[in-house]
Simulated scan of single mutants.
Amino acid sequence: MKRSGHEEFLRATSVIDHDNPAVRKKALTLAEGLSGDVEISRACFVFVRDEIRHSWDYRANPVTLSASAVLEYTTGYCFAKSHLLAALLRANAIPAGFCYQRLKNHGDIGPVFYLHGLNAVWLEDYGWYRVDARGNRPDVHAAFTPPKECLAFVPKEPGEADLTGVFSDPLPAVVNVLSTFTDYLDVRRNLPDIEE
Rank of each mutant, 00 (worst) to 15 (best):
residue 2 K to V: 13
residue 3 R to W: 07
residue 4 S to T: 15
residue 4 S to M: 14
residue 6 H to A: 04
residue 8 E to G: 00
residue 8 E to I: 11
residue 9 F to N: 10
residue 14 S to H: 12
residue 15 V to Y: 10
residue 16 I to S: 00
residue 31 A to S: 11
residue 35 S to W: 04
residue 36 G to M: 00
residue 37 D to T: 12
residue 39 E to P: 00
residue 40 I to F: 11
residue 44 C to K: 04
residue 45 F to G: 02
residue 46 V to N: 04
residue 46 V to L: 14
residue 47 F to E: 08
residue 48 V to Q: 04
residue 48 V to D: 02
residue 53 R to P: 00
residue 54 H to S: 05
residue 57 D to A: 10
residue 57 D to E: 13
residue 58 Y to S: 08
residue 59 R to H: 12
residue 60 A to C: 06
residue 60 A to R: 13
residue 60 A to H: 03
residue 60 A to Q: 13
residue 60 A to E: 06
residue 61 N to D: 15
residue 63 V to M: 10
residue 64 T to H: 05
residue 65 L to E: 10
residue 65 L to F: 09
residue 73 Y to H: 14
residue 73 Y to L: 00
residue 79 F to M: 09
residue 80 A to M: 01
residue 81 K to Q: 09
residue 81 K to I: 10
residue 82 S to K: 02
residue 83 H to N: 15
residue 83 H to P: 11
residue 83 H to Y: 11
residue 84 L to I: 02
residue 86 A to D: 06
residue 88 L to Y: 02
residue 89 L to G: 04
residue 89 L to M: 08
residue 92 N to V: 05
residue 93 A to R: 09
residue 94 I to A: 08
residue 96 A to T: 02
residue 100 Y to E: 03
residue 102 R to I: 14
residue 103 L to K: 02
residue 104 K to D: 01
residue 104 K to F: 07
residue 105 N to V: 14
residue 107 G to R: 11
residue 108 D to A: 12
residue 108 D to Q: 13
residue 109 I to D: 07
residue 109 I to Q: 05
residue 112 V to Q: 13
residue 114 Y to D: 05
residue 116 H to N: 02
residue 119 N to F: 03
residue 122 W to S: 06
residue 122 W to I: 05
residue 123 L to K: 11
residue 128 W to R: 07
residue 130 R to S: 12
residue 132 D to R: 12
residue 139 D to G: 08
residue 140 V to R: 13
residue 141 H to C: 11
residue 141 H to G: 00
residue 143 A to C: 11
residue 145 T to W: 08
residue 147 P to V: 01
residue 148 K to C: 00
residue 150 C to G: 01
residue 151 L to W: 07
residue 153 F to W: 13
residue 153 F to T: 04
residue 154 V to L: 10
residue 155 P to W: 13
residue 155 P to Q: 07
residue 157 E to I: 03
residue 158 P to A: 10
residue 159 G to E: 06
residue 162 D to T: 01
residue 162 D to Q: 07
residue 164 T to E: 15
residue 164 T to Y: 03
residue 164 T to A: 14
residue 166 V to L: 10
residue 168 S to P: 09
residue 169 D to N: 07
residue 170 P to Y: 09
residue 170 P to M: 04
residue 171 L to K: 09
residue 173 A to M: 07
residue 177 V to N: 06
residue 178 L to K: 06
residue 179 S to L: 07
residue 180 T to F: 01
residue 182 T to R: 14
residue 186 D to Y: 01
residue 186 D to H: 04
residue 188 R to T: 09
residue 188 R to P: 00
residue 189 R to Q: 15
residue 190 N to F: 12
residue 195 E to S: 10
